[in-house]
Amino acid sequence: MATAGSIRTLPDFSLSPRIDQVGVEERASRFTKRSIKKETKMNGLKLVLNMIDLTTLEGKDTDGKVKQLCYKAMHPHDAVDGIPKVAAVCVYPSMVKVAKKAVEGSGIKIASVVTAFPSGQAPRDIKIRDTKYAVNEGADEVDMVISRGKFHAGEYNFVFDEIAAIKEACGTARLKVILETGELGTYDKVRRASDIAMHAGADFIKTSTGKIQPAATMPVTLVMLEAIRDFYYKTGKMIGMKPAGGISKSKLALHYLVMVKETLGSDWLTNEWFRFGASSLANDVLMQIVKEKTGLYQSANYFSVD
């Protein structure tokens, strides 16, 4: 929780920088004009794969489904050598134990969505218990959602305190804060929510739950990356970024990497500081990697669908 001492240094979040929509979208589209070929492309693709939080977040998830996903995470495509693993597997709290066991020894992290994901409409004590449960089950990373209703109502202190409380509940687990940008409405609010999350203790900020459209877009991610950069300017503290939902093609993912590099620099180009929340992206990346190696355009039939 924010102490009296830290409150003095907290910014007034209603004064977060304004974002011009047309300008930010123009800038974002500039990254898509960068062309990445050959060796750079291969390195980029491997990096993308290595940054993926392979995700399943469904009511119908079972132990079996999660195990299969975990296998895929560790062995994305054994037919080809030199394919990296993904960064993490992202599941509901009830699946953490299964997943944790399945990836044991692989170095792959287990992330769990908490705080009454995806709506976040639950009392704080339940959210804290949700978080503690996931951490106790073995989650290395915790993906929380902010209370968008309270945020829209202007109750920034509530949002801030909640994030700080969850951060405390996380212990050593890294906290990703999902803004659910598709429900925020404007880039100004995305920026403001980013600032609140970072100041409240987020290790990562994340665009979306994947349950709401639109999910991650390049402009919205750019706004968040710029918030991260400004926070870094002010505090010297690095914050991670995770766009989630809507990124299913390698080409788009590579454009995201260009955006990260040109906005934050190369230091952020590792899975410690940047993740893709995605499920179908992995296979597209694999197809592209194989295509680069063989020169042949690939068919989905040759890549496992887990």
């Binding site: 920088p17 304004r18 974002i19 011009d20 123009e26 710029e226």
Partner: peptide, 11 residues
């Protein structure tokens, strides 16, 4: 000072 700074920089 009240400009959308990042877009201004880009501009």
């Amino acid at each position: 000072e009240d400009a959308p700074i990042d877009q201004a920089v880009e501009g």
